[in-house]
Nucleic acid binder design. Structure first.
Length: 154
DNA sequence: GCCAACGTTGGC
DNA sequence: GCCAACGTTGGC
């Protein structure tokens, strides 16, 4: 399968791009996705080496904070089994895990590209992120959108 | 804090 | 299987 591209949203108060850069091997385990469509992208489509736009959401200035890549195959998200976690899911079992995690490695931090700026570029008007009402936290990015944004980030 | 949009739940 | 009610997301 050819390389694919993704946008993944993180709340920087929880895990920021800087946090990932400061982590061992600049790699973080992506956890807490509790939406089936987002989960399916992670579980069924992501491949090691796929490109990731690391997006900061629910913060003062939402936008793309850096470039990352998929660094593992998918695995069960451990937080679903942890009663102390806000992401605990009583219906998930080791035999039948419901939610997926994956490792993401920070690759490059360039210029922070604000959501406001993304909206200003006609080249990006079809981005799923920018669609009205779009709330998905993990979504595919088209190859031409990816190339355009890489240039913006510099 | 507001609220539009969306996803999930659960009664029927 | 429908759909109203509810909860969540996330920009503003």
């Amino acid at each position: 399968m050819p390389k694919q591209y993704w946008l993944m949203k993180s709340e920087p108060d929880d895990v920021s791009f800087d946090d990932v850069l400061a982590s061992k091997n600049q790699t973080t385990s992506w956890y807490g996705v509790r939406n089936y469509q987002a989960r399916n992208f992670m579980r069924d489509a992501m491949q090691v080496g796929d490109g990731v736009l690391f997006y900061h959401s629910s913060c003062a200035v939402p936008g793309i904070a850096g470039i990352a890549e998929i660094a593992s195959t998918p695995y069960p998200d451990a937080t679903q089994f942890d009663p102390a976690s806000p992401y605990y899911d009583a219906k998930a079992t080791a035999e039948n895990p419901r939610w997926t995690g994956i490792d993401v490695r920070a690759v490059k931090q360039g210029r922070y590209v604000e959501l406001k700026e993304l909206r200003s570029h006609p080249e990006l008007e079809n981005m799923r992120l920018l669609a009205k009402g779009s709330r998905l936290s993990v979504m595919p990015v088209e190859a031409d959108e990816w190339r355009f944004i890489l240039k913006l980030i510099g």
